[in-house]
Design a protein around this nucleic acid. Structure first.
Lengths: 233, 233
DNA sequence: AAAACCAAAGTGGTTAACCAATTTTAACCT
DNA sequence: AGGTTAAAATTGGTTAACCACTTTGGTTTT
């Protein structure tokens, strides 16, 4: 599945329709965990959509752990129980597209954690990678060019060093949308370059000396402007 | 795209290979943001894989905001710059599958935030939904049945009330894998039912009286056992 | 010389045919 | 009858053909 980033299209509309159809089918037929769903061909005929659409919907539900496809055998209801399934399906169907504020809020939460964990768990290898990202960022600014990318990579380097693959994945997930929204809402970036360099250095130093509390504090200071901006949009 | 939950399969192996091929191609041809990638048919011929695989890889990179497909026109390098792109691609290719510890650690982080936000932002509608999940959970336990699903739905109801669609999506994303891992590692659940009911009630009351600090505190207490368990695995 | 236009090639998206593995069915032997 | 086995039907996955739309290059017209 994917985090919805663009506006709800016709395609997603039909996908949601198929998902709710599958839900209704499971409930109507009282399918329990382990039971087999009708074949993709039958579903496509029954719901009057293409088999590709059916496959897409099934893949999405597979991502959320609700269904499980077994090659040359069938698609089965996963072992999470009908109650949880219905609850989750309802949530999935009602999921809104993430707005800018929600993204920034989440990013701040994630990064205050990743920087803390990175300070605790970073290896020497992580440290040199972060240092390199730090230097690249500074050099790019020194050359008078826009350094949004390098700024971003510094933060991703920290996420990578936090030793938590889920958090790392989430950071990778929201980063591109953050960039897009930054451009869309014209978040200022060229100003205060020197301040940002200093803040990055503070964060790096805290990670280097393995001081998680200080690292979190410096990251929070780094997000101060963004935080204010986010809540004034 | 999707959060990888199962062990690395051949399919994902070829997908990674295609992605790194695309990366090499972009670097070799010095493609810049906005430039057009070769057509899917050409790529499938060049990399000696099926067009479906190419499409899958492109969709994954589209999810991370690196590429952008335009119907009847072509696939283009997104506007994030070659430096950030290479950095992100490296991270994406090296992404590990999320382990249990990382999932639990992330869940605790997310829920301490969602419960706080829910206490601040919950509507009356949210409150009745949470209350219903609370009651369902208690009833199920009273009937002597296993109530893992209802427990889960209580937490998802809180996530839904936090007013942050990104956090809500993340919670939905990790929940099924958490369930699977709970079963896999035989995390005890039937014991301490009454304690859990009480803890849920405390959390609900805090959200009801819109006390974010108290809500977070109660959630932290609720996770105490899980926290210890997680760090002893 | 520049603008308008049209046909042909090329694109991602969609649909239908095909494949190998599995499951079911039924025929057959003991 | 019961068990065995082989063949036929069914499955999700894969590949190839098709479609509607966009782009583009050359030609014509003004």
């Amino acid at each position: 599945m994917k985090l919805e980033i663009h506006t709800r299209s016709d395609h997603e509309e039909t996908l949601s329709k198929i998902i709710s159809n599958i839900r209704d089918l499971i409930n109507y037929k009282n399918l329990e965990p382990g039971d087999k769903l009708p074949s993709e061909r039958m579903l496509s005929e029954k719901f009057e959509v293409s088999r590709s659409n059916i496959r897409e919907a099934i893949q999405k539900l597979e991502f959320y752990g609700i269904l499980h496809s077994k090659p040359q055998s069938g698609t089965f209801v996963a072992n999470i129980g009908v109650v949880a399934m219905n609850g989750m399906l309802e949530d999935i169907l009602e999921l809104e597209d993430p707005d800018f504020k929600s993204l920034v809020e989440t990013r701040i939460l994630l990064e205050l954690k990743t920087v803390r964990l990175a300070a605790i768990r970073r290896t020497e290898e992580d440290l040199v990678r972060i240092k390199k990202a730090l230097d690249d960022h500074e050099k790019k600014i020194a050359s008078g060019q826009d350094a949004v990318q390098e700024d971003l990579l510094f933060h991703l380097a920290i996420a990578k060093a936090c030793g938590n693959s889920t958090l790392n994945t989430f950071m990778l997930t929201i980063t591109p949308q953050i960039i897009i929204d930054f451009e869309k809402y014209h978040v200022c970036y060229n100003e205060l370059d020197n301040v940002r360099i200093k803040e990055h250095l503070d964060i790096y130093e805290a990670i280097k000396k393995q001081d998680p509390t200080l690292a979190k504090e410096k990251m929070k200071a780094h997000f101060k402007l963004l935080y204010q901006y986010c809540y004034n949009v």
